[in-house]
Design a protein around this nucleic acid. Sequence first.
DNA 1: ATGTTGATTGGCT
DNA 2: GCCAATCAACATT
Length: 206
Amino acid sequence: MAARRLPRSFFLRPTPEVARALLGQRLVHEQRIGGRVQRIAGIITETEAYCGETDLACHARAGRTKRTEPLYGPPGFTYVYFTYGNHWLLNFVTQPEGVPHAVLIRAVQPVEGLELIARRRKGRPARIWTDGPGKLAQAFGITGEHNRLSLTAPEAIIFVERGQPIQDALVRSGPRVGLGATPEPWLSKPWRYLATLPQNKEEITR
DNA sequence: ATGTTGATTGGCT
DNA sequence: GCCAATCAACATT
Protein backbone atom coordinates (compact mmCIF):
# COMPACT_ATOMS: atom_id res chain seq x y z
CA MET A 1 0.00 0.00 0.00
CA ALA A 2 1.43 3.30 -1.12
CA ALA A 3 1.94 5.98 1.52
CA ARG A 4 -0.12 9.11 1.07
CA ARG A 5 1.66 12.19 -0.22
CA LEU A 6 1.01 15.57 1.31
CA PRO A 7 -1.30 17.61 -0.97
CA ARG A 8 -0.92 21.19 -2.09
CA SER A 9 -3.35 22.34 0.64
CA PHE A 10 -0.87 21.23 3.32
CA PHE A 11 1.37 24.15 2.30
CA LEU A 12 -1.42 26.72 2.28
CA ARG A 13 -1.53 27.28 6.02
CA PRO A 14 0.43 29.88 8.02
CA THR A 15 4.11 29.10 7.53
CA PRO A 16 5.08 28.41 11.17
CA GLU A 17 2.13 25.99 11.29
CA VAL A 18 3.43 24.20 8.20
CA ALA A 19 6.93 24.05 9.68
CA ARG A 20 5.53 22.46 12.84
CA ALA A 21 3.34 20.04 10.91
CA LEU A 22 6.24 18.84 8.76
CA LEU A 23 7.91 17.25 11.79
CA GLY A 24 7.47 13.49 11.60
CA GLN A 25 6.64 13.51 7.89
CA ARG A 26 8.78 11.60 5.43
CA LEU A 27 10.93 13.47 2.91
CA VAL A 28 11.45 11.35 -0.19
CA HIS A 29 13.77 11.74 -3.17
CA GLU A 30 13.27 9.28 -6.02
CA GLN A 31 16.30 9.87 -8.17
CA ARG A 32 17.12 8.18 -11.45
CA ILE A 33 20.66 6.88 -11.24
CA GLY A 34 22.12 4.74 -14.00
CA GLY A 35 18.73 3.89 -15.46
CA ARG A 36 17.02 2.85 -12.26
CA VAL A 37 15.17 4.77 -9.58
CA GLN A 38 16.92 5.10 -6.25
CA ARG A 39 14.68 5.97 -3.34
CA ILE A 40 16.06 7.96 -0.41
CA ALA A 41 13.88 8.94 2.53
CA GLY A 42 14.14 10.48 5.97
CA ILE A 43 11.81 11.53 8.77
CA ILE A 44 11.82 15.31 9.12
CA THR A 45 13.10 16.31 12.57
CA GLU A 46 13.93 20.00 12.26
CA THR A 47 12.47 22.92 10.28
CA GLU A 48 12.40 26.71 10.20
CA ALA A 49 9.74 29.12 8.93
CA TYR A 50 10.68 32.15 6.80
CA CYS A 51 7.85 34.59 6.46
CA GLY A 52 7.99 37.03 3.58
CA GLU A 53 9.37 40.46 2.73
CA THR A 54 8.79 41.89 6.19
CA ASP A 55 10.71 39.04 7.85
CA LEU A 56 14.23 40.47 7.69
CA ALA A 57 15.72 36.98 8.01
CA CYS A 58 13.91 35.79 4.89
CA HIS A 59 15.54 36.00 1.47
CA ALA A 60 12.38 37.75 0.30
CA ARG A 61 13.52 40.83 2.24
CA ALA A 62 15.44 41.65 -0.98
CA GLY A 63 12.16 41.62 -2.89
CA ARG A 64 11.57 39.81 -6.12
CA THR A 65 14.89 38.88 -7.71
CA LYS A 66 16.13 36.04 -9.88
CA ARG A 67 17.09 34.13 -6.76
CA THR A 68 13.90 34.68 -4.78
CA GLU A 69 11.51 34.12 -7.68
CA PRO A 70 10.48 30.61 -6.53
CA LEU A 71 9.32 32.05 -3.19
CA TYR A 72 6.73 34.09 -5.08
CA GLY A 73 5.44 31.05 -6.90
CA PRO A 74 2.67 28.66 -5.85
CA PRO A 75 2.89 26.63 -2.63
CA GLY A 76 4.08 23.06 -2.63
CA PHE A 77 7.19 23.74 -4.70
CA THR A 78 10.87 23.50 -3.80
CA TYR A 79 13.15 26.47 -3.25
CA VAL A 80 16.75 25.27 -3.37
CA TYR A 81 19.54 27.79 -3.03
CA PHE A 82 23.32 27.80 -2.74
CA THR A 83 25.18 29.42 0.12
CA TYR A 84 28.58 29.79 1.78
CA GLY A 85 30.24 28.74 -1.48
CA ASN A 86 29.56 25.10 -0.66
CA HIS A 87 26.07 24.16 0.35
CA TRP A 88 22.62 23.64 -1.14
CA LEU A 89 19.64 24.21 1.16
CA LEU A 90 16.17 22.74 0.60
CA ASN A 91 12.98 24.68 1.32
CA PHE A 92 9.28 24.16 0.65
CA VAL A 93 7.31 27.17 -0.56
CA THR A 94 4.18 27.97 1.45
CA GLN A 95 1.33 30.50 1.19
CA PRO A 96 -0.56 31.52 -1.97
CA GLU A 97 1.22 32.60 -5.13
CA GLY A 98 2.73 36.06 -4.69
CA VAL A 99 3.33 35.62 -0.93
CA PRO A 100 7.02 34.72 -0.52
CA HIS A 101 7.15 32.35 2.46
CA ALA A 102 8.99 29.03 2.84
CA VAL A 103 10.04 26.33 5.29
CA LEU A 104 13.71 25.33 5.47
CA ILE A 105 14.24 21.61 6.03
CA ARG A 106 17.09 21.52 8.55
CA ALA A 107 17.40 17.87 9.54
CA VAL A 108 15.99 14.41 8.91
CA GLN A 109 16.49 10.96 10.34
CA PRO A 110 17.44 8.71 7.40
CA VAL A 111 15.22 5.66 6.89
CA GLU A 112 15.63 4.55 3.26
CA GLY A 113 18.56 4.52 0.86
CA LEU A 114 21.13 4.27 3.61
CA GLU A 115 23.82 2.76 1.35
CA LEU A 116 23.63 5.70 -1.04
CA ILE A 117 23.60 8.19 1.82
CA ALA A 118 26.66 6.52 3.32
CA ARG A 119 28.45 6.80 -0.02
CA ARG A 120 27.61 10.50 -0.36
CA ARG A 121 28.56 11.23 3.26
CA LYS A 122 31.64 9.06 3.00
CA GLY A 123 33.82 8.65 6.03
CA ARG A 124 31.42 10.31 8.45
CA PRO A 125 29.56 8.56 11.28
CA ALA A 126 25.86 7.92 10.62
CA ARG A 127 24.79 10.26 13.42
CA ILE A 128 25.94 13.28 11.40
CA TRP A 129 24.77 12.16 7.96
CA THR A 130 21.69 14.41 7.79
CA ASP A 131 21.66 16.56 10.94
CA GLY A 132 22.05 19.90 9.13
CA PRO A 133 20.45 21.52 6.06
CA GLY A 134 23.60 21.37 3.93
CA LYS A 135 24.32 17.84 5.06
CA LEU A 136 20.90 16.48 4.21
CA ALA A 137 21.00 18.09 0.77
CA GLN A 138 24.33 16.41 0.12
CA ALA A 139 23.08 13.07 1.45
CA PHE A 140 19.91 13.27 -0.67
CA GLY A 141 21.73 14.48 -3.78
CA ILE A 142 19.74 17.70 -3.88
CA THR A 143 21.28 20.60 -5.84
CA GLY A 144 20.27 23.62 -7.89
CA GLU A 145 18.72 21.41 -10.54
CA HIS A 146 16.02 20.60 -7.99
CA ASN A 147 14.98 24.21 -7.56
CA ARG A 148 11.36 25.11 -8.26
CA LEU A 149 10.06 21.55 -8.60
CA SER A 150 6.52 20.59 -7.67
CA LEU A 151 6.19 18.44 -4.55
CA THR A 152 2.65 17.46 -5.42
CA ALA A 153 2.64 16.67 -9.15
CA PRO A 154 2.12 12.97 -9.98
CA GLU A 155 5.57 12.89 -11.55
CA ALA A 156 7.30 14.66 -8.63
CA ILE A 157 10.66 13.16 -7.68
CA ILE A 158 10.92 15.07 -4.40
CA PHE A 159 7.80 14.88 -2.22
CA VAL A 160 6.60 14.36 1.33
CA GLU A 161 4.74 11.28 2.56
CA ARG A 162 2.51 11.34 5.58
CA GLY A 163 4.26 9.94 8.66
CA GLN A 164 3.58 9.56 12.35
CA PRO A 165 2.36 12.80 13.94
CA ILE A 166 4.67 14.13 16.64
CA GLN A 167 2.96 15.11 19.89
CA ASP A 168 3.54 18.58 21.31
CA ALA A 169 5.44 17.20 24.30
CA LEU A 170 8.15 16.01 21.89
CA VAL A 171 8.45 19.28 19.98
CA ARG A 172 10.64 22.21 20.92
CA SER A 173 10.76 25.58 19.22
CA GLY A 174 13.17 28.46 19.45
CA PRO A 175 14.99 31.17 17.49
CA ARG A 176 16.21 30.38 14.01
CA VAL A 177 19.85 29.52 13.42
CA GLY A 178 22.58 31.37 11.53
CA LEU A 179 20.82 34.69 11.09
CA GLY A 180 23.84 36.87 11.83
CA ALA A 181 22.96 40.56 12.18
CA THR A 182 19.23 40.18 11.54
CA PRO A 183 17.44 42.83 13.64
CA GLU A 184 14.81 42.18 16.26
CA PRO A 185 12.11 41.08 16.49
CA TRP A 186 12.97 38.73 13.62
CA LEU A 187 16.14 37.44 15.22
CA SER A 188 14.19 36.00 18.14
CA LYS A 189 11.02 34.78 16.47
CA PRO A 190 10.57 31.16 17.69
CA TRP A 191 10.20 29.77 14.21
CA ARG A 192 12.61 26.87 14.53
CA TYR A 193 10.97 23.53 15.31
CA LEU A 194 12.71 20.36 16.52
CA ALA A 195 11.28 16.90 17.11
CA THR A 196 12.70 14.60 19.73
CA LEU A 197 12.54 11.16 18.15
CA PRO A 198 13.73 8.07 20.01
CA GLN A 199 17.08 8.07 18.20
CA ASN A 200 17.14 11.82 17.89
CA LYS A 201 17.98 13.12 21.34
CA GLU A 202 21.21 14.68 20.19
CA GLU A 203 19.29 17.08 17.96
CA ILE A 204 18.10 19.02 20.96
CA THR A 205 21.45 20.26 22.07
CA ARG A 206 22.90 20.87 18.67
C1' DA B 1 32.38 19.28 25.49
C1' DT B 2 32.73 23.87 23.74
C1' DG B 3 34.60 27.53 21.00
C1' DT B 4 37.01 29.49 16.82
C1' DT B 5 38.16 29.77 12.11
C1' DG B 6 38.91 29.00 7.08
C1' DA B 7 36.74 27.43 2.93
C1' DT B 8 34.54 29.00 -1.33
C1' DT B 9 31.04 30.95 -4.87
C1' DG B 10 26.93 33.36 -6.37
C1' DG B 11 23.78 37.02 -5.54
C1' DC B 12 22.97 41.48 -4.56
C1' DT B 13 24.12 46.57 -3.43
C1' DG C 1 33.00 44.52 -2.46
C1' DC C 2 30.43 42.34 0.95
C1' DC C 3 28.21 38.79 2.86
C1' DA C 4 25.73 34.47 3.40
C1' DA C 5 19.19 30.28 6.45
C1' DT C 6 26.86 26.04 6.75
C1' DC C 7 30.30 22.58 7.56
C1' DA C 8 34.36 20.45 9.23
C1' DA C 9 38.75 20.79 11.16
C1' DC C 10 41.26 22.20 14.81
C1' DA C 11 42.23 24.26 19.34
C1' DT C 12 41.30 24.72 24.04
C1' DT C 13 38.98 23.51 28.62
